[in-house]
Design a protein around this nucleic acid. Structure first.
Lengths: 255, 255
DNA sequence: GTCTATAAGATGATAGAC
DNA sequence: GTCTATCATCTTATAGAC
């Protein structure tokens, strides 16, 4: 396994767990039973080691890209943070673009699946009369829960996505991965607002995603502006307000 | 004066006008009467020439920074676009950071002054009973008008600001320049919503600015998502909806 | 898998000629 | 004011040793 940034870090073995989350993309893919009969897993399989190294690199890249964007991070920065040599990054990810894409894709599936599942469940529950606020809760809350409960890696990923969303390189990546969920939401909104034009509904979504991305970016602006009354990383506070706020906005568009 | 990107461009003399806007920061500062009696201004003063060169550089930098951010643009990119050598950029702006800051500051004052004036006028008109929607119109509309009527340079500046707003380098720049106007808006909102907590009001503003920045960024995402029904650069469509939408959101927070 | 060595090119910046 | 020449440094990427 790789060094963990700080040289000779004694607890480097723990990092993967510390940063781990119950939901993991790679779980199961490796085909390795973690329980087995081994005594406290003294030895790891090659596949496990590789997966762990990949995770550490992706964590570092995710953190740095979320702060400075694609061009603001060098492979040297990433390697230094992990405590390895840049050549190893090429070994694992070929080039910088692939690394960037890997960071995006690692968690994209998880958040999409959760939101899609929540939307589908809401559709069933609501039957013929979905509400805007109900749909928005189904769309937004699973994500907020992920960021609130998932710890630092997920919060970094959120900021990473916020950055990507305002960049041109990332627009295609966003579309390819998130469009199905968003269109699912749009579909429910249309049924909740049958007399609305598509234009009104899409602009409403545009406002929501703007507010959401501004939250995920955690720039610290609202902290200073409010003199500490609000904190950029107070996701629960936003979760509590955003669906109700935006639902009312929708209803007012034709009012 | 400088070359205008394309070598031997015959109409390079016209560029400054083409990109010019009625509102200009430098107007008046130069102490040069443009009308005078000169026959179609065959000769320019040194100061005028210098100002024009600066404008051309700033236009190019503004465009590029708005697309790729601070780290995604090299001085060579800027120089190439203007048709000059990088050393000249150092001559005018010292270093890259100063150039970036100059791009930001060139138009920051204009938009702030306009919005502040509109907010103050609204305060007078509304007297003791300001409304949320009224305050938001005063805050947002002058800016939208600027972007709609100001042409490409102002639209690029808008995208530039959107990018800055999600970056850490830019957070301080944003605060130093825009906080007074924003706090003015917050003050009016407080009077419009006397029973609201500061927290609710600041989070509401947070949502608004997110939606606004997402608009200014013009990433093209809403275009593809909506299959062409909405266009990223359709500022009038947003102007028409955003104040009403967000005002309703505010009113719903305590409802 | 991890490292050393190395290359080719880009980048921000300076000194000085014209 | 504008350009040439030059610099040290950084950046991505490859080949090959261990």
């Amino acid at each position: 396994m790789l060094n963990s940034g700080v040289k000779d870090s004694p607890q480097s073995e723990l990092l993967a767990e510390e940063f781990g989350l119950a939901i993991s993309l790679d779980e199961g893919k490796l085909g390795v039973k973690s329980g087995d009969t081994a005594p406290k897993r003294l030895r790891r399989s090659k596949a496990e080691q590789r997966a762990e190294s990949l995770e550490q690199i992706l964590d570092a890249a995710e953190y740095l890209f979320s702060k400075n964007g694609f061009y603001g991070v060098t492979l040297r920065d990433v390697a230094l943070r992990v405590g390895i040599h840049t050549t190893l990054l090429h070994y694992y990810f070929d080039d910088k673009h692939h690394l960037f894409e890997a960071v995006f894709k690692r968690r994209a599936g998880v958040t999409c699946d959760r939101r899609m599942a929540a939307l589908e469940q809401y559709e069933k529950e609501a039957g013929d009369h979905p509400t805007v606020e109900g749909a928005l809760h189904a769309f937004l809350d699973p994500d907020f829960d992920l960021y609130i409960e998932g710890g630092e890696p997920w919060v970094n990923y959120a900021a990473f996505c916020a950055r990507v969303s305002h960049s041109h390189e990332g627009a295609a990546m966003m579309a390819a991965n998130f469009d199905p969920v968003v269109l699912k939401l749009i579909g429910i909104l249309k049924r909740a607002l049958p007399d609305y034009s598509d234009e009104d509904i899409f602009w409403g979504y545009h406002f929501i995603t703007g507010a959401l991305m501004n939250t995920l970016a955690r720039t610290g602006r609202i902290d200073r502006l409010s003199g500490g009354i609000c904190r950029s990383d107070d996701f629960p506070a936003v979760r509590e307000r955003i669906a109700k706020f935006m639902a009312a906005g929708f209803l007012a568009l034709k009012g």
